[in-house]
Structure formats: structure tokens, C-alpha cells
Amino acid sequence: MMGNFLTNQQIASLVEAIQSAEDHSTGEIRVHIDSNTENRDAKTAFDVFKKLDMDKTAERNAVLFHVNFEQKYLTIIGDIGIHEKVKQSYWDHLHDYITAEFAKGHYYQALKSAILETGLELKKHFPVEGENPNQLPNEITFS
């Protein structure tokens, strides 16, 4: 299903990167890999965001990387809490970096760097005080 984009080992490693990125922050990060959708628009990503309950975190600080490798398409959605802190320019910069790396065929490295980078932003704006329950699963989802 993944074609030549990511190996199972790389997928497992991305899940570890998500766990590590979520340490010390209440933020949540998900990666969704879409192999079905033809249309390259944000609506599909928003539908996934909602379906994964990403708009239900306590501080509204979940971030979704919605990727379609075949279509060379990426949407990053940051919920209102994190978006208010980092502004659109942050997502634009991250999006440009990832798509430039995808163009070189660096799928795994680009996603891993983006996840860890997002984790640093989440730590900065949403540090953990006390308990830090994982509000959303770290597994990568597929459609």
C-alpha cells in the first residue's frame, strides 16, 4: 500500500518520533497517509482531522500531517490553540521544507524532521505541568 515511499521500519520509527515529540508537551501530533483521495484540497485533511477527534484535545493543540505521496500533496493542520501561537508563516515554512524534501525523495527524513520540529514548538507553547496523558494515539493512520 505504501508503494516505495516508506518501509514498515520507517513507519515504526515515525511513531517513535511522534512519542518523543509529544514528550514534555500537552500537544498531540498525528500523521495520516492517504492513498485514495484524488482531490488535492484541504477539505479532505479537515475531514480526517475531525474523524481522528483531533479537535477534541484539552488545549486545542493537535497537529495533523496529511500526506498523499502519489499526488505529492501535503496539508498541515494545526488546531486553533497552536495555530494562534505560531501563526500561518510557521506552517508555510514547514510545508515548504517538507515538500522540497519530498521532491528529492526524502519522504521519511522530511516527515521525521517535521514531527520533531513541531514537537519543539509544542513544548515551547504548551509545556507539561504535572500529568501528561496521551490524548490521542500515536499510530500513523491510512486511508
Rank of each mutant, 00 (worst) to 15 (best):
D55E: 15
H106F: 13
E84I: 05
S25P: 00
H95N: 15
T118M: 13
G130T: 12
V67F: 00
F49Q: 08
T75S: 12
F102I: 10
K104P: 00
Y90W: 10
Y108R: 04
T44Y: 00
L111H: 08
D34E: 06
D79I: 05
N134P: 04
Y97A: 00
K51E: 14
T44N: 11
S35I: 11
E70N: 15
G78L: 13
A58I: 07
V67A: 07
S89K: 14
T75I: 11
D92Y: 04
T44G: 09
N138W: 04
L64Y: 02
F65C: 02
H66L: 10
K72R: 14
L94R: 04
G119P: 02
E139M: 01
K43E: 15
F102P: 00
Y73W: 13
E131A: 15
A62H: 06
H125I: 03
L136G: 02
I80M: 11
H93Y: 11
P137K: 15
K51G: 07
N68L: 03
Y90V: 05
E84L: 14
L136W: 01
E38K: 14
E121G: 07
A58D: 15
Y90K: 06
A62S: 12
A42H: 00
H24E: 15
N134F: 09
E131I: 07
E139L: 04
D34H: 02
E59N: 09
V128A: 07
E139Q: 08
D53R: 11
A103S: 13
I33G: 02
D47N: 15
V128F: 01
I82W: 14
K87H: 14
L74R: 09
E28F: 02
E101L: 08
M54V: 12
N138M: 03
K72F: 14
I77P: 01
N61A: 03
V48N: 04
I29L: 03
L116G: 06
K50S: 06
E70L: 14
F69A: 13
S113A: 15
S113P: 00
T44C: 06
I82C: 07
N132E: 13
D92C: 08
R40I: 03
N134M: 05
H93Q: 12
F46Q: 14
A45T: 04
V63L: 05
H24W: 03
D55P: 07
D41L: 11
A110L: 03
E129S: 14
H32C: 05
Q135M: 12
L116F: 06
S113I: 07
L116P: 05
Y73F: 14
H66I: 01
T99L: 13
Y97P: 00
N132L: 07
H95M: 12
G119W: 10
E139K: 01
K56F: 02
P133K: 12
G130V: 06
S113K: 12
P127Q: 09
I77Y: 01
D47R: 11
N61Q: 13
K87D: 15
L52V: 06
N134K: 10
Y97Q: 10
F65P: 01
L74G: 09
E131P: 12
Q135N: 12
E84T: 11
E70C: 06
Y90I: 08
P127I: 04
G27N: 02
D92H: 02
K43Q: 15
V48E: 03
F69N: 02
T26L: 11
T57L: 12
R40S: 07
K104W: 05
K50M: 08
K124T: 12
Q71T: 08
I76Y: 02
E28C: 06
L74M: 11
F126G: 07
H125Y: 14
